[in-house]
Amino acid sequence: MPGELVEAPIEVYRFDPATDKAPRYERHVLSLAPHTPVLTALLRIRAEEDPTLSLRYSCRSAICGSCAMLINSKSRLACQTPIGPEIERHGRIVVDPMRNQPVLRDLVTEMTPFWSQYRRIEPHLIADPAHPMPEGRPTSMTPAQVERFRETPRCIACAACYSACPAVEADPMFPGPMALAKLYRFVVDPRDGATRERLVRIQPNGLWLCLRCHLCTEACPKGVRPSERIMDLKELAIAAQGATDPGSRHAVAFKENIRERGVLNELKLARQTAGTAGFLAQLPQGVRIARRKPELSKTPPTIAGKEEVEKLYEALDDGGSSA
């Protein structure tokens, strides 16, 4: 293909835990067309300069999910990230292994925790004895049922979302965006017989640990938009079980709390979320916080223009989300 070549400085993370004391970056400068994918650049480094560079890759067309890595600190698929815009923005390309996973060598990470979380959500159809599969023919599905699958079948399990997720970093019990998006895929499947059980099981140490930062949706190379699927799950979870988990109680309490005065009443929120007994158990911690930030221990005054807030709530009740 015609076009000018650019000088591409590429700095690649190198580390062999068996022999190296510490990681290092190796710098290569290649002349490449701007649309060249980072994966192609890395494979050229392997073929022409250093065959000891280790990474995972296979299809080179964003369907196998092998080559997720950090490219200038963002979790991306190397095969579909062109070098041109990266060079323009950052002047160089820094390549690191994914986050939230130990490094096995160079860009190859330990993905066992990621796969364990995927297995945790029981990623398979669970038979519904009341509605067995039709014998000898496929299940029929309405267009509305099919529509609920729109994003989730695109997932290629590349773990870019898992790498980008601060909730995974904070708490390894958190299933991570991919597993939850996969759970959503089964929850909305009309062939599955365990919708309610799935929604109940995922709440403790699970669903409500999501921080709603949407970094997974930013990272996802396939448009699965995991954070939106997580919000969908939260709504379905409350619908299935009511606000009984501390996480869902917190979400519902948050909503009701702000509605009262148009501003968050932290003191009351703690009681609403944890219940009276839980509130008392947290009291020593509460006192410590109140000493540092006295304004949190007082009930705030109702804000001016609260009627505008009420209008927002009414709009939300008409078709919005509580989670």
Partner: peptide
């Protein structure tokens, strides 16, 4: 035919016509 039906029952998300069929 049986193979496709089996894969549908395993959970494959096939595209559908407006009438709900494959």
């Amino acid at each position: 035919g049986p193979t496709v039906v089996e894969m549908e029952h395993f959970g494959t998300i096939f595209s559908r016509g407006d009438d709900g069929s494959l």
